[in-house]
Computed example of a mutant assay.
Amino acid sequence: MKVLAFAATSSRQSINKQLVQAAGDIIKSDLDPSADIEVIDLNDYEMPIYSIDRENEGGIPEEAKRFFDKIGSADAVIVSYAEHNGTYTAAFKNVFDWASRINMKVFQDKPQVALSASMGPGGAASVLNSATGSAGFFGADIRGSLSVGPFGEKFDTEAGKLVDETLNQSLREALAALVEDRTSSEKAA
């Protein structure tokens, strides 16, 4: 099973990246040791701000095509959404907007676990609600979601894992739903 994971932010020290890495670790250690977890960085897909004029003048940038292809080559996706002013980060929105010009179903009907984290108690729940609420329009098959906040109290950055047992169990259940169908279909084949 190939899992693509990323934080929907350009922050190099992102708590959301720490969360997707922890999720990948849980899959590898507890759910599917043979899984191939690839964590990508949105900074590798930076491109001009989307506009129809730019698209008409130069077409779709290679970075958008590479991002779209990364999703297409995965069996499942884990995204942790950072929240800027109650919504998506500009970095994610731009990559997403360009990729949607290739195909509106950016997530290509892949099973997905949607996460979010913030240092505040809300855990970036506003952006997570937006993402899960619109997921179906963009080809994401949401298998579970989880908001983590305040991150500094719920996550041990040294150990790279959640320390809140209720959140940890919720994350494991969401990830199990992500892995379950894929491993069942592989066994049947």
Results as ranks from 00 to 15, higher is better:
residue 170 S to N: 06
residue 85 N to E: 08
residue 156 D to G: 06
residue 156 D to Q: 10
residue 60 I to S: 04
residue 146 L to Q: 00
residue 139 G to M: 12
residue 55 E to S: 03
residue 149 G to E: 03
residue 108 Q to W: 08
residue 56 N to V: 10
residue 77 V to C: 01
residue 137 F to Q: 14
residue 160 G to K: 11
residue 153 E to N: 07
residue 55 E to V: 11
residue 78 I to A: 02
residue 163 V to T: 15
residue 50 Y to I: 07
residue 174 A to K: 11
residue 169 Q to H: 02
residue 171 L to M: 10
residue 49 I to M: 15
residue 103 N to H: 08
residue 100 S to W: 00
residue 137 F to I: 15
residue 126 S to D: 14
residue 175 L to N: 07
residue 102 I to E: 03
residue 67 F to T: 04
residue 132 T to C: 13
residue 108 Q to P: 11
residue 158 E to I: 14
residue 49 I to L: 14
residue 138 F to Q: 05
residue 61 P to S: 13
residue 127 V to N: 08
residue 71 I to F: 09
residue 144 G to M: 10
residue 118 S to K: 05
residue 46 E to I: 07
residue 108 Q to S: 12
residue 95 V to L: 00
residue 124 A to E: 10
residue 79 V to E: 02
residue 64 A to V: 04
residue 108 Q to H: 04
residue 116 S to T: 12
residue 156 D to C: 07
residue 91 A to Y: 05
residue 112 Q to T: 15
residue 173 E to S: 12
residue 71 I to G: 05
residue 144 G to L: 09
residue 48 P to W: 13
residue 152 G to H: 15
residue 121 P to K: 09
residue 81 Y to G: 04
residue 138 F to P: 05
residue 130 S to T: 14
residue 106 V to F: 00
residue 170 S to V: 00
residue 136 G to Y: 02
residue 68 F to D: 05
residue 138 F to K: 04
residue 125 A to R: 06
residue 136 G to Q: 13
residue 165 E to K: 09
residue 50 Y to Q: 13
residue 58 G to S: 14
residue 139 G to T: 12
residue 111 P to Y: 14
residue 78 I to P: 02
residue 46 E to M: 13
residue 169 Q to C: 00
residue 106 V to D: 00
residue 70 K to M: 03
residue 156 D to N: 15
residue 165 E to I: 14
residue 56 N to T: 13
residue 70 K to S: 06
residue 142 I to N: 10
residue 60 I to L: 06
residue 89 T to G: 05
residue 106 V to Q: 03
residue 160 G to V: 10
residue 162 L to N: 01
residue 94 N to Q: 07
residue 166 T to L: 01
residue 174 A to E: 02
residue 133 G to F: 10
residue 120 G to Q: 11
residue 76 A to S: 09
residue 79 V to I: 14
residue 91 A to P: 03
residue 174 A to R: 09
residue 93 K to G: 00
residue 62 E to N: 11
residue 131 A to C: 06
residue 106 V to T: 09
residue 58 G to D: 11
residue 165 E to D: 10
residue 96 F to H: 12
residue 134 S to I: 12
residue 83 E to A: 03
residue 168 N to T: 14
residue 80 S to M: 07
residue 88 Y to V: 09
residue 56 N to P: 00
residue 96 F to L: 07
residue 103 N to S: 15
residue 141 D to R: 12
residue 171 L to Q: 09
residue 88 Y to D: 08
residue 65 K to V: 11
residue 157 T to S: 05
residue 98 W to N: 09
residue 169 Q to D: 11
residue 169 Q to I: 05
residue 143 R to F: 06
residue 171 L to K: 05
residue 82 A to I: 13
residue 77 V to W: 01
residue 115 L to C: 02
residue 82 A to Q: 04
residue 88 Y to T: 08
residue 144 G to W: 14
residue 164 D to A: 07
residue 130 S to A: 02
residue 152 G to R: 11
residue 56 N to F: 03
